[in-house]
């Protein structure tokens, strides 16, 4: 097939370069804007020459910084608090989804039992439910029946339920690939179902767990609509604060881009650390659905 030192057409590299620039340019623009003061953003001439500053980030994080700021007249604590809320909500819901999801996926793959068909069918169907569809019922139920509106527990419950179908679906495709002999050998050595699961299966599907946890974290970290409907001033997440600050007439682009950057950083880090797992997870679904 291809020899390793095969020469490629220069146009081919030009195309590659153009694609890379196209995918990164908007992110780079956001990053560079977040280092500019609003005067620099607004000025007609400035394009490449500006004095980078961390002031926007300081403004955003004013209440969690340990030093006093001179350029901030009034410190708005909403963002720092939202960042904490987002972290707590995303981490806990990811944890719960992962534990319950891989147990369910294991049961669906390895056991034959009554209701298995229904369960796996339901899971598949639930994957398509858009958050907008859950808005009305979740608002009604969580406010009037569960009385969980404005609490961490309430929103975490929604995110876990929303993410479970997808996580179960991804993990199934990883568990199917484990050679059954591995589990049988453990059984013969006297391990019960739970020991087999925790000591044999879980360590083998680590890449799948990584992919699933990144997808779950991403949804919980980025979700806006339901968070906006359920959470109150004290429990608000970052996406909600961003949208709220956008409704103002005069947008301070530097500050808003710094906020956006802070929201974007965790997913970007995950992407660079675990891109291989993410791609495996993505393809596992479609290439063998």
């Amino acid at each position: 097939m291809h020899s390793t030192n095969e020469r490629q057409n220069p146009a081919f590299y030009a195309l590659l370069a153009a694609l890379v620039v196209m995918s990164i340019a908007p992110i780079y623009l956001m990053l560079s804007t977040s280092f500019r003061l609003n005067v620099d953003v607004m000025s007609e001439t400035s394009s490449l020459l500006f004095f980078p500053t961390l002031q926007n980030y300081e403004t955003v994080l004013c209440n969690v910084l340990w030093y006093q700021l001179d350029h901030v007249d009034y410190c708005d604590p909403s963002f720092g608090r939202a960042l904490g809320n987002s972290l707590i909500i995303a981490l806990i819901s990811t944890g719960i989804t992962l534990v319950t999801g891989c147990m369910a996926a294991y049961a669906l793959v390895r056991f034959r039992f009554m209701g298995r068909g229904t369960m796996s069918m339901t899971t598949l169907m639930m994957r398509m439910v858009p958050p907008a569809v859950l808005l009305v019922p979740v608002f009604g139920i969580w406010t009037f029946q569960y009385q969980l509106d404005g609490t961490y527990a309430g929103i975490i419950m929604v995110y876990v339920a929303m993410n479970l179908p997808f996580v179960i679906w991804i993990l199934q495709s990883f568990i199917v690939q484990i050679p059954i002999q591995l589990e049988e050998a453990a059984r013969i050595d006297g391990a019960n179902a739970f020991q087999v699961f925790f000591l044999i299966v879980l360590p083998v599907i680590k890449p799948g767990l990584a992919a699933a946890s990144i997808f779950t974290f991403r949804i919980a970290w980025n979700e806006f609509l339901i968070a906006n409907a359920l959470l109150d001033r004290n429990t608000r997440t970052v996406p909600v604060t961003i949208v709220n600050s956008l409704t103002e007439y005069d947008i301070n682009w530097g500050v808003i881009m710094a906020t956006g950057m802070l929201l974007a950083i965790p997913p970007i880090i995950f992407t660079f650390v675990a891109s291989k797992q993410i791609i495996t997870g993505m393809t596992a679904g479609a290439v063998k659905g």
């Binding site: 694609l19 890379v20 995918s23 990164i24 908007p26 992110i27 956001m30 991403r218 970290w221 980025n222 806006f224 996406p239 961003i242 949208v243 956006g260 929201l263 974007a264 997913p267 970007i268 995950f270 992407t271 891109s275 993410i278 791609i279 993505m282």
Partner: peptide, 12 residues
């Protein structure tokens, strides 16, 4: 690099 746009929050 190509999966970055998908991972970033839709809000962003």
């Amino acid at each position: 690099i190509f999966i970055l746009p998908m991972m970033i929050a839709p809000i962003v």
